[in-house]
Design a protein around this nucleic acid. Structure first.
Lengths: 218, 218
DNA sequence: ACAGAAGTTGAGTGATCACTCAAACTTTTT
DNA sequence: AAAAAGTTTGAGTGATCACTCAACTTCTGT
C-alpha cells in the first residue's frame, strides 16, 4: 500500500524535461507548444492543465534547472576529483563533452536563455540569475577550499563568476566557429591565470618565510 | 548631374538598419516581419523586393554588421586613445556604455544571434564567425603593437579571442543580473591578467639584462 | 517623349502560433 | 459504491506568422 513509490509522477516532470531539452536545442521562441506536446507524448490540454502559459512553463523549467544543477552537473564533477582546481576544470570539461556530443551545438542551456529572454521577461531573468549564482557559488566554494594556494585577500566569489564568464564566452565562440578550439583556448588562458595567481602566492609566502618577522599587518 | 549624391539609397539600407536594431533588441525569432516593416515605414512587398526571405535578410544584416564594425565601433575607440592596452579597455567601455544606455539590456548584437541562430543556420553561423574574427583581429593588432610589453612568445590572436570571450561572458551575466557589476568584475580580472603578463615580461627582461650573455637560443 | 526597369503598394494567402474547453477517463476520498 | 477531485483527450479558437502578387508609381536611358 504505502510502499508504492511514485511510479507515475510522470506527466508534469516529463513536460519539464522535454521543454528543458527543446529550449536548449532550439531556443525558447523557436520551440512551439505543439513540438513539446508531441515529444512528450501528450496532448495540449494536458500541458495547460499543469502550466498556465508558455511563459509560466519557461519559469518552471528554469526552476527545474536549479534543481538539476546539483545532481546532474556538480555531483559527477565532485565525484571525479577532490582537488579544488581540478574540479573547476573537470566542470568545464563536462560542458565541453556536451558540445562534443552535440557537434558543437547547444552550449549552456541557461546561457542561451539568458540572451534570448532575460530582456523581455523579468521573472525569467531572476531565475536565470539564480541559476548563475548557484553555479558560481559552488565554484566559489571550491576556490575557498583551495585556501592558501591562492592569495589570501583574493575575492573567491568574484573569481568564480569569472570562471562562468570564461565558460559562457568560450562556448559562444565555439558554437560560432563550429570548433572547440576557442573554448579550449579560453580554458587554457583561465588555467594560466590561476597558475599566475598561485605562483604569486607561492613567491610571497616564501618571501614571508625568509623574513618571518613583521611589517605584514597594515 | 553627376554631383548628385545618393540622396535616396534609402529603403534597402533602412530595412537593414531597422532589422539589425530589432534583432538586437528582441532577438531574431521574436521579431516579426510586420514589426520591421512598420518601424522602417515601408510595406511588406518592399521588403521582399530586396530580400528573398527572413533568413536571407538575417544573412544580409550580418554582412551589414561586418561593415558596421569599423566605422561605428573600432574607429571611435582608436580615436580616443593610441595606447594598445587602453584601446582594449576603451572598447570594452564602449560596450558597457551601450548597456548603461539600454538599462542592462541588449548586450552584443552578434553574440545574441550567435546563441539564437548559429545551430540552425550554417550560413548565419559563418557570418557570425567572421564578425567575431574581424573583432578579434583588430584586438590582436593592438596586442601586436604592444610589442615587448607582453611576453615575446605570447599568442596575440589567442589573447584577443580571450578578450572577446570575457566581454561576451561578462555581458551575458550583466544582463542576467540586471547589474553591470559582473561585467565590471570580469573586465577587472582581465586587466589583472594582462598586468600579470606584463609584470612577468618585465621581470624576465630585467633578468636578461643582468645576464646579457647567452643560453637564450634553444 | 516614351518604353522598360526599378521600386512601392497593401490587401490577401495558407500555415502555424499559443491556447481553450466540454466531455471522458482515472484516481482518491468518504 | 457513490461522490469528488484529478487528469487526459483532441478538435477547435482567433491571432499572428512569413510571404505573395497584380496593380500602380517613380526612376532611367535613349
Amino acid at each position: 500500500m504505502s510502499a508504492q513509490a511514485p511510479l507515475e509522477p510522470e506527466t508534469r516532470e516529463r513536460i519539464l524535461r522535454t521543454a528543458f531539452q527543446l529550449f536548449h536545442e532550439q531556443g525558447f521562441h523557436a520551440t512551439g507548444i505543439a513540438t513539446i506536446v508531441r515529444e512528450a507524448g501528450i496532448n495540449p490540454g494536458s500541458l495547460y492543465h499543469f502550466f498556465d502559459s508558455k511563459d509560466q512553463l519557461l519559469l518552471q523549467v528554469l526552476e527545474f534547472a536549479i534543481g538539476y544543477l546539483e545532481p546532474a552537473v556538480m555531483a559527477p564533477v565532485e565525484r571525479r576529483t577532490s582537488d579544488p582546481f581540478e574540479r573547476i576544470f573537470a566542470l568545464l570539461a563536462q560542458y565541453r563533452e556536451g558540445m562534443v556530443a552535440s557537434g558543437c551545438r547547444m552550449g549552456c542551456p541557461i546561457g542561451n536563455l539568458a540572451l534570448e529572454v532575460s530582456d523581455s521577461n523579468p521573472e525569467a531573468r531572476d531565475l536565470i540569475h539564480r541559476n548563475f549564482q548557484n553555479w558560481a557559488s559552488r565554484v566559489a566554494g571550491w576556490l575557498t577550499e583551495a585556501g592558501q594556494r591562492l592569495p589570501k585577500q583574493l575575492d573567491r566569489a568574484q573569481l568564480a563568476r569569472f570562471v562562468l564568464t570564461v565558460m559562457e564566452g568560450g562556448l559562444m565562440q565555439a558554437r560560432a566557429a563550429n570548433d572547440l578550439r576557442p573554448f579550449d583556448e579560453a580554458v587554457a588562458v583561465l588555467r594560466q591565470h590561476l597558475e599566475l595567481l598561485r605562483r604569486r602566492t607561492a613567491r610571497r609566502r616564501s618571501r614571508a618565510v625568509r623574513r618571518p618577522a613583521g611589517k605584514r599587518r597594515r
